[in-house]
Computed example of a mutant assay.
Amino acid sequence: MFYFLFEIIRYPNYTPILLHAVELWHHEPQVTTPVLKLFAELVQNRSQRLQFDASSPNGILLFREASKIICSYGNHILNVEVPKDQIYPLKLKGISICFSMLKAALCGSYVNFGVFRLYGDEALDNALNTFVKLLLSIPQSDLLHYPKLSATYYLLLECLAQDHMVFLSTLEPRVFLYILSSISEGLTALDTMVCTGCCATLDHIVTYLFKQLYQKGYPGRKNAVVPGGGELFLQVLKQHPEILQQILSTVLNVIMFEDCRNQWSMSRPLLGLILLNEEYFNQLRENIIRSQPVDKQAAMAQWFENLMNGIERNLLTKNRDRFTQNLSMFRRDINDALKGPNISNSVSDMMTS
């Protein structure tokens, strides 16, 4: 049934009509929402239904048409002014569907995206650049205020960090800082799925950073070369080290003192954050220890010692798994102590002081 529908509307039959409708009535959700949802469904590889022959161009053609729809709607809706109380139904809903469409297309496993750059096709770059423009048009407070928007955004961001990290690493500093800031906010979201997605995204980013810095000889070599446009990526973090430091504090604070419902997910980026910010982590640890009652300081120091016991300076799976086990014991010890005399939460205090 799906292939029957696909064959009916696929390029060049009716997709130009749908594209033209979006261009003409981009300001009318009654028109654009059904068209966007149709394409979001078409690119969704649910139950692996998009199984094209090896010689078939259909996967590439489908993505190109989806890219055209995203770019057309995105570039037009950016210029539409709407009342604040109507921003979601008139604007953000369509943007959310575009995010969902792009995520489904990027993660569908039916398109070889290297083909686009190999043959000079700008469909992928256009879609990704439109995503950036749409993202910057959204106040960060709205990302978590509207649940459907936050769900589609963070799912798309996780997909980009997993498979298109080179693209993220070449973004302008203000864009990358916006994304990191949104991840920091999402780590404390009430929605567990959002928080878990932020942990996965952060893990991909931190792992990429660690590989760029340490596998290429940094900081041992002054002229270490970072491939894939990573130089700009690293410069941003060198100029704003407080971003990852704050995220490290947030993750550690959640694990130690809050009701952490996704401890395993939190543990995966934490090791990389510690290894990238060892000096700051040591300061944070000492601050926490000193802030405890005198009779608790020795125990807290031992728990931190146990946390890093046997941990090497790498992000190999075996090392990560050991850190996750250590972290589980670390959190258990903290929780047991919290049941007794009060133990001070100073991670957040350090960040705000």
Results as ranks from 00 to 15, higher is better:
1 M>F: 10
2 F>I: 05
3 Y>P: 00
4 F>P: 00
7 E>C: 07
7 E>K: 13
10 R>L: 03
12 P>W: 07
15 T>H: 04
16 P>Q: 06
18 L>D: 00
18 L>S: 03
26 H>V: 04
29 P>G: 05
30 Q>T: 13
31 V>E: 00
33 T>C: 11
34 P>Y: 10
34 P>F: 08
36 L>D: 04
38 L>D: 01
39 F>A: 01
41 E>D: 14
44 Q>H: 12
44 Q>E: 13
49 R>P: 00
50 L>W: 02
54 A>S: 13
58 N>Q: 10
58 N>T: 10
59 G>N: 01
64 R>C: 08
67 S>M: 08
68 K>P: 00
69 I>E: 02
72 S>T: 15
74 G>F: 03
75 N>C: 07
80 V>F: 08
81 E>R: 13
83 P>C: 04
88 Y>S: 05
89 P>G: 09
91 K>C: 12
93 K>P: 06
95 I>C: 05
97 I>N: 01
99 F>S: 04
100 S>K: 07
104 A>N: 12
108 G>D: 12
109 S>Y: 09
110 Y>F: 10
112 N>V: 15
113 F>A: 02
115 V>Y: 02
119 Y>M: 13
121 D>H: 11
122 E>D: 13
126 N>D: 15
129 N>I: 14
132 V>E: 06
135 L>W: 02
140 Q>E: 07
141 S>F: 03
143 L>Q: 03
143 L>N: 05
150 S>P: 09
151 A>K: 06
152 T>A: 13
159 C>T: 14
165 M>C: 09
167 F>G: 01
167 F>C: 02
168 L>H: 03
168 L>A: 00
174 R>F: 06
175 V>N: 05
177 L>K: 13
179 I>L: 15
181 S>Y: 12
182 S>Y: 06
182 S>K: 03
183 I>Y: 04
184 S>E: 15
185 E>M: 12
188 T>E: 09
195 C>V: 05
200 A>I: 15
204 H>M: 07
208 Y>I: 00
209 L>Y: 06
210 F>A: 07
211 K>E: 02
213 L>F: 08
216 K>L: 10
217 G>P: 08
217 G>Q: 01
219 P>C: 06
220 G>F: 13
221 R>Y: 11
222 K>L: 11
225 V>C: 09
228 G>P: 14
228 G>T: 02
228 G>K: 07
234 L>G: 06
237 L>K: 03
237 L>T: 11
239 Q>P: 00
239 Q>A: 12
240 H>C: 07
240 H>V: 14
245 Q>K: 06
246 Q>D: 15
249 S>V: 14
251 V>S: 00
254 V>W: 00
255 I>P: 02
259 D>T: 13
260 C>R: 01
270 L>R: 01
273 L>N: 03
275 L>P: 10
276 L>C: 07
280 Y>I: 12
281 F>I: 10
284 L>W: 09
285 R>V: 08
287 N>D: 12
288 I>S: 01
288 I>Q: 12
289 I>K: 02
289 I>L: 06
291 S>H: 07
291 S>G: 15
294 V>S: 14
295 D>K: 02
303 W>L: 07
306 N>H: 12
306 N>E: 14
307 L>G: 07
309 N>S: 15
311 I>P: 13
312 E>T: 15
314 N>F: 02
315 L>C: 12
316 L>E: 09
317 T>L: 07
319 N>L: 08
324 T>S: 15
329 M>C: 08
330 F>D: 04
330 F>E: 05
330 F>T: 02
332 R>Q: 08
332 R>F: 04
337 A>S: 11
345 N>R: 09
